[in-house]
């Protein structure tokens, strides 16, 4: 088999077979696209190419063998899938031609300012926090802060102290300014390692480490904060529980939290909020725990692909980006342009 034959054969194969041939022969083959892969294979020394040609023949002889076997053992599953067999129609395969750029860019604009109407899940979360712990798992920018402010208002109305913790000092500062504007400067205090600004205020903002330290001091007797009036603890960015270095602080805080205090955990989308909720129920048997999971974005998100030449095309073959279990498909135009880019880097 000469190079031309080999190239023709390789071109006709799906890329996964090319990766199989390249394994152990080409360094970082998994980073290469089809055309570069074929080029690299053709650039291999001749004995390697011979071995690949041999593999190729074996591969192409399988369908024939299957044809002869099929009469005797029709139900036997083949060891290798037939490379040339047409793929099953993809569940997402559009029957209509793929959507165009105009569809995608439609509807850009600023909505009329209208009174804020909370979403269902936000209302549910606010209702639930009045009598139980709540875990909110929702994507970025979907309005978790609204739940927090409503919960704070509820608690402050009954003269309870509220502690709001965030993982980063930068976030604490932003929230301090935000809440000071919303509730009034005298209602909000902030605690850091060395500073206590307005520590007698009903709403205190701090990092989770500081809260953990307060809880330790409280359990060991040298109480210096009004823990008995502490009605609500809000842990923002609770997904930090999984942070390799600092995650343990969140666990300590949750374990040591007084039982009469309600917890509001605000977290970005995570895979196992259910597990987190089960855990909270198991360690705080006196309070129930509501899980509010919201996966849909309040503003739909669309994907675009910008080629280095300045061409703008849709990224996926659906209009909005949504979470889907069945996989995704790139827009054919994106695929074509990207393979071009991969093959010939644009400089």
């Amino acid at each position: 088999m000469n190079d031309n034959d080999l190239q023709r054969e390789l071109v006709s194969l799906p890329i996964k077979y090319l990766h199989r041939f390249a394994k152990g022969r080409i360094h970082r083959h998994f980073r290469l696209g089809k055309r570069r892969l074929i080029d690299s294979i053709l650039a291999l020394p001749s004995d390697q190419k011979l071995a690949i040609a041999h593999d190729l023949e074996q591969l192409s002889s399988i369908p024939k063998k299957r044809a002869t076997e099929s009469s005797t053992a029709p139900r036997q599953t083949p060891l290798h899938p037939r490379p040339s067999s047409p793929k099953k129609p993809h569940p997402h395969k559009p029957t209509s031609p793929p959507i165009g750029l105009q569809d995608l860019l439609e509807g850009i604009g600023v909505p009329e300012p209208k009174p804020f109407v909370p979403d269902d899940w936000q209302r549910k979360a606010v209702e639930a926090i009045a009598h139980s712990d709540v875990i909110v798992s929702a994507p970025t920018g979907s309005g978790k802060t609204f739940v927090a402010t409503e919960a704070i208002q509820q608690a402050m109305a009954t003269n309870q102290t509220v502690i709001y913790t965030s993982p980063l000092k930068a976030l604490s500062n932003t929230k301090y300014m935000e809440f000071s504007q919303y509730f009034g400067a005298d209602q909000v205090g902030i605690l850091t390692g060395d500073r206590r600004d307005n520590a007698q205020a009903p709403l205190l903002i701090m990092t989770t480490e500081i809260l953990r330290n307060i809880l330790y001091d409280a359990t060991s007797g040298d109480l210096d904060l009004r823990l008995h009036t502490l009605g609500l603890v809000i842990l923002d960015e609770s997904q930090y529980l999984a942070d390799p270095e600092r995650g343990v602080v969140w666990e300590e805080t949750l374990i040591l939290c007084p039982t009469q205090t309600r917890l509001l955990l605000l977290s970005a989308s995570i895979g196992n909020p259910q597990e987190l909720a089960e855990w909270l129920i198991s360690i705080r048997p006196t309070t129930s725990c509501h899980l509010i999971q919201h996966t849909k974005r309040s503003v739909p998100l669309r994907g675009l692909y910008l080629h280095p030449t300045g061409q703008l095309v849709p990224l996926l073959d659906s209009r909005d980006i949504q979470q889907q279990r069945k996989g995704y498909r790139f827009h054919p135009e994106t695929k074509r342009l990207f393979s071009e880019y991969e093959f010939k880097p644009y400089h």
Binding site: P111, F116, T140, V299, L304, Y305, H307, P308
Partner: peptide, 17 residues
């Protein structure tokens, strides 16, 4: 998730380049 401002945008975009 930073794409698309609630109340200020009808749609948000992710551009891959």
């Amino acid at each position: 998730g930073r794409g698309g401002r609630r109340g200020k945008d009808f749609v948000g975009f992710v551009v891959v380049t």
